[in-house]
Simulated assay, not measured.
Amino acid sequence: MSFKYTPPKYAQLIAELERRIESGEYPPGSPLPSEHQLMAEFGMARPTVVKALGVLRDQGWIVTHQGKGRFVRGRPAIASGQQTRMGRELLDRKEAQVESSLLSAGPVPAPNRIAAYLNIEPKSPVVLRKILVTRDDEASEISSTWVPADVAEGTPLTGTDDLKQGVRRYVEAAAGIQLDHIVEHVTARNPTREECKLLGVKPSAALLAVYAVAREATGKPWVVVETVLPGDRHELEDAYPIK
């Protein structure tokens, strides 16, 4: 038996309004049809229309002026469905889908920086999983995942096989929680001896170190993913609306 997926009504309305904005039917600065007009045109209840409009506002497609109505802003710099933030990509990346080699996987004492990010005592037991990622036969980055030892124990994070899911899924399943948001920290520094050898860079080279700290809704941190990037091989770019 085959099943055909039908998006919920509010999602259908979002898709249609986005299409009209992108096509120029609703140009930037123009007023959006009122809630009542949209309800009549699409045969939807007011809560459904309000939910769709709220999503479009939060994503930057439209803006609300008190007492005047809703107006089109235009296509966001990067539409939410296409936005790829580095921390999210690192948490969801599957090792089986990238060209990589495992450098280490096992318990270590938490370095001071990682301990601070995880809100634990320095030297507390954590599991470190480190891989070297290559692209076009050239070392591209060193990616390290730090998880409290009691969470990582018994999961594939300590094994030698390529991870078939992103780190996020293993941590959520092991801890019985849902990760809610990521805080990123970016620093620049010179490489260690090991990084010079692995990345093929000189001791004077500039590296970018990106730390993504994943937290649950309460703010409690559960995992840190660090990626070290040679500065001459990477460029970080982000785009977001000005509100």
Rank of each mutant, 00 (worst) to 15 (best):
E141C: 11
T218D: 12
S101H: 11
L208M: 14
A214I: 04
Q82Y: 14
N112M: 07
N119M: 13
K123V: 00
V151W: 05
D137G: 06
L90C: 11
E18Q: 15
I177K: 03
A139W: 02
E99W: 09
S2V: 07
A217G: 06
K220Y: 09
G69Y: 12
A188W: 07
A139V: 06
W61Q: 12
I177R: 05
E226A: 12
V183E: 15
S100G: 07
V167M: 09
V201R: 08
V108W: 02
D180S: 09
A11P: 00
A79L: 13
K9L: 13
R73G: 07
L198R: 01
I142Q: 03
G67P: 05
A110H: 04
L103T: 08
P203D: 03
G67T: 13
E16N: 08
L208Y: 15
L90V: 13
L32T: 01
A15S: 06
I242N: 13
S23D: 02
Y211D: 12
E216W: 00
V201E: 04
L207Q: 01
E99A: 07
Q178L: 13
D58C: 05
E89V: 14
T6Y: 04
K9R: 14
P191Q: 03
R85D: 08
P191E: 08
L207V: 06
P122T: 03
L198N: 09
R93E: 10
V213M: 13
K130R: 11
T158W: 02
G43N: 03
D180E: 04
I114L: 05
E41D: 08
T155E: 09
R193D: 05
R70Q: 14
R113H: 03
V228P: 02
Y26W: 15
